[in-house]
Write a protein that binds this DNA or RNA. Sequence first.
DNA 1: ACACATCGACTACGTCTGTAAACATTAAGC
DNA 2: GCTTAATGTTTACAGACGTAGTCGATGTGT
Lengths: 129, 129
Amino acid sequence: MAQKKLGPGDRISEAEHAVMEALWEENPLAAAEVCERVCTANDWSIATVKTLLSRLVAKGALGTEPDGRKFLYRPLVERDEYVGGESRRLVDRLFGGRAAPLFAHLAENEALTDDDLEEIEALLREMRK
Amino acid sequence: MAQKKLGPGDRISEAEHAVMEALWEENPLAAAEVCERVCTANDWSIATVKTLLSRLVAKGALGTEPDGRKFLYRPLVERDEYVGGESRRLVDRLFGGRAAPLFAHLAENEALTDDDLEEIEALLREMRK
DNA sequence: ACACATCGACTACGTCTGTAAACATTAAGC
DNA sequence: GCTTAATGTTTACAGACGTAGTCGATGTGT
């Protein structure tokens, strides 16, 4: 088999996600370059990053292209896709699929800044067309 | 030590969460009663439920009171507390702590029903006092 | 040519999770 | 009293995850 498309079983773990973020921000990158942007923040060794990269490739979340003796990695899944999936999973699991209760929750716990409120209002206005 | 308060390291896993949901909806319940409400839906055996209950007790998420030869389990963490924590974690991880982008995302993918929109508008109105 | 630095591949290993069986105790029915 | 059914406790085990070391190949500087 050549390319295993990311099955729904192939979830991206939390540590892997940090690697994905780096690559979503800039790509393609070599392993060492990825390490430069995530190793210190997470207190990881280069070896750890290599493992995470391999697992992400195995899961079909990353693709590689050879560049001399090294590999360049680039995301195969869009950040939007991932973020959307995770968001929906949470809303499904905790709020029965309804987004309003999530919103209410965030609002209650003042997890919403004034900027957020304004932005959301704007979105609503635009949505109402 | 008698009561270990749920440390932040003691996360509730997905399977465990299903058990918690049952107990949040009705409590206290015995293991067999919990199984009645979650075993068929998840295709679990009673043994699995017992394990999950034990682990939740160990994590400090559930408390027990003896009832004859059996135990009754009841939540020690509020559903709101859990839900709030998980929501914030997601927002932090995926949206840099800002809720507006999450909202935008849900909106884009029409994960928002008309009811949701109305409800959110109402919330906004009320919040603006 | 040769030592050295790099890089990906393979291996390792402890913890957590999902899933469950085996075991011990004990209340209850006969 | 003794068998049986129910219940919590212990043990099990495979797969995922976090974290990293070792190994073999290969390019690099001198």
